[in-house]
Structure formats: C-alpha cells, structure tokens
Design a binder for these strands. Sequence first.
DNA 1: TATCTTTGTGAGTGAATATTCACTCACAAA
DNA 2: TTTGTGAGTGAATATTCACTCACAAAGATA
Lengths: 205, 205
Amino acid sequence: MSEYSLTKIRMQTKITSRQLEIIDATGKILTESGVNGLTIKNLAKEMQFSESAIYRHFNSKNEIIIEMLHYLAETLDDIYIASYSHDDNPEDKLLQLINDKLVFFKENPHFAVVVFSDGLLEDSLKANEAIHSIMMTKQKHLRPIIAENQSVDNFTNDLSEEEIIHLLMGVFRLQMFKWRISGFDFDIVEIGNKRLKNIITLIKK
Amino acid sequence: MSEYSLTKIRMQTKITSRQLEIIDATGKILTESGVNGLTIKNLAKEMQFSESAIYRHFNSKNEIIIEMLHYLAETLDDIYIASYSHDDNPEDKLLQLINDKLVFFKENPHFAVVVFSDGLLEDSLKANEAIHSIMMTKQKHLRPIIAENQSVDNFTNDLSEEEIIHLLMGVFRLQMFKWRISGFDFDIVEIGNKRLKNIITLIKK
DNA sequence: TATCTTTGTGAGTGAATATTCACTCACAAA
DNA sequence: TTTGTGAGTGAATATTCACTCACAAAGATA
C-alpha cells in the first residue's frame, strides 16, 4: 500500500486525552445549552477545574471549536473507512456505511449538534472550512458506492451521482435535525435506516 | 398578550416600518456575522443610530428575534396562500409553491440563515417554538398537494405523504444551506427548481 | 401658544466575557 | 540535589454585553 493513499493523508492533529475530554464537554454543553451556553466558565465547570486550566490545553475558545470540528471530520473519515468492505454488493455497502454513521451519532449525540451549528465562530471562515470538509468527507466515501450501484444498474441513472448524494445528505441532515430538536427522543439508527430504505425504494431500478 | 397561534388564528402582530427595518438589519447581521455577531451595538451601527434607539422599538433583544421569526412565519404563510390555485393540476401546484418560496428567499437571502439557526436564544423555548412553527407551516401547505398528487396516481404511494414531505424538505434545506455557505453565489431559484424536478422524476408514477 | 407624543441621543450601569497573570505542586530526569 | 515541566489554581484584566435613564428636537393636538 502506498504511503500516500488518499484516505490516509490527513495529518495527525495529535490530540491529547485531556483535549478530547474538553471537546466532549464542549459538545455536551452545546447540546444542553446551545451556542450561547458555551462559555469558558461553563466549560471549566463541566471539566471540574478552573477556567484558566482550559488555556493550558487550548489557546482560545475558537480553537476548541475548530479542533472539535476537525476531530469530528477525522473520526467520521475513520468510520467510513472502517465500514468499507470489498466483499459486499454495492447496495449492502451503502447500507453498512449509513448504518455505521448513524450508530456513531447515536453514541455521540453532541456531535449532531455541532454539524448544524454554524455561526459558532466569529471568524466564520475557518468554521465554514471545517464544516465544508466534513461534507466533502462524506461525499468522498459516498460517491464511489453510488457510482458502483449505478454502473451495475442497481440504481437509476435518471439522476446523476451528485444528485443522488445530495438527496441522501439532505434527507439525513433533516432527520438529524429533527432528532436534535426532539431532544434525541427517538432511535436515530432505526429511523435513519428507514429513511435510507425509502430512498433506495425510489432510486432502485 | 395572548398567543393562540393555532394554524388559522394568525394574530396581526402589527409591525411598524421601523421595526421591519430592524428585523431586516438583524437578518443581515446574522447572515454576515452569525449568532455571536448579533449584538445591539452591531444592530445600532447597521441602523445608523444609537443603541438606545433600538429600545424605542423593541423591549429586548430576544423580542427582536422572536418577532423576526413570527414575521418570517407569517410572510411564508402568506406566500403559500398567494401561490395556491384551484385550477392547476396538482403537479403544477407543487411546482408553483416551491418556485414562489424560492423566489422569496432569493429576494430575502438573509432569512435563509434564520431558518437554520436554532440556538438563537438562550431562552430557546420561544425560539424553537417559532422555528417549529415555520416548519409546520410549510408542511401544512405541502401536505394536501402531495396527497392530491398521490390520490390521482401522479405520485407513488410507495412512500407515505409524510415521507415524501421529509424528502422534499430535506433536499431544499440542504440546498439552501449550500447556497448560504457559498455566499449566495448561485441562482437558488434555478437550482432549487432543478432539485424539485429531480425529486418528481423519482416519485412520479 | 402650550402641551403631549414620538423618536431620537449620550452617558452611564452592573454583569458577563475571554484571556492573562503570578503562583503552586507533584513528579521525573540529570 | 538540582532543575525542568505539565497541569493545576485564584485573582485581576480589559472588553463587551444588554439595558436604563435623563434629556432634547419635532410634530401633532388642543
């Protein structure tokens, strides 16, 4: 395997375990109290140490958010890679990919919040960048699977690859949004998989 | 001030022209600087008068946001009502409805931001309520049109009414999101209508 | 003319905010 | 034994926040 295999080139933003804890706490606060609740004070309270200690691990509040988005992007990339199998038929590949992603969000609901909260940063440039990168990651993994399904005539060619991806992402984003504003009240894995089946019903030849 | 906002009882929250200007400015700021950029100071700067003058027209910052959401909900409702025609065939009704909505957002891009920004308020109760109401409004108008299309066998019955609506809303929300982070760089009416055609291709019998 | 009413202002206020400061302290390497 | 370090602390900082209030200009009204 080449050292420069596409999927592996993301640089290891080495994150300490403490930093990860803080990122988790950030997510938790965002989940419970929204954007305005995310203050260093609340973060310190959640971490059960002083406000100043936060700055031992991050240079600024913005950095925390950006690091969180990067971490999420990397983690999702890993999930997509892990769920990839050469053996399955292309439709099962899609089912597997989506299911794994749903399970991840079920287990880490606070990340569901972050994906939708734009306007998190004053300097929205870097945030948009990070959010964009998350969307691109998903697209990167989805694209070949859709293409394969189309080429074996399992999915329709009435819509382009890109259009089908948009459809999928739109439906899932909305479902995640509903999940979130419901207070994570239902089983996102179950409902999410149902939505996928719905779409497959439509795009299957 | 009693708020019995069942679907039909839209009380005329009489809004002055000055208030509307402030609401517009609010949307503009949200678009450009995100949630954290929305301060009374910035609002005053945008309005080109003093901070205290804002309080001549609204009692609090929260009130501005809530009033903005109400105004948006009412305006959208009006648009839906205006676009409704008894004569058209059910598919054209859908095309018309979506097109009118797209045109509205094209002309008022800053409102496109608001729809996605939850966590706008600390006291998120009323805001979430308002956002929920906007989504319900759309659903209220979409539902009978979808149902009619299904009942005349123009749209598939493989998916329920609700599932088709979810599909539509998901696809449009994502498209609006892309529009927004692109800096409103493309013609949302054109692309949006294309997306609708895509979906119709799939759900048409 | 005299007096409301509306809409603006400038100068404040206390609270909250992110960030910095000087400082401990346990621990480990030299 | 000395020295360096990572990880914590409480107090202090400057800034920003939403909001208040006494006051003024200008119409409308009486």
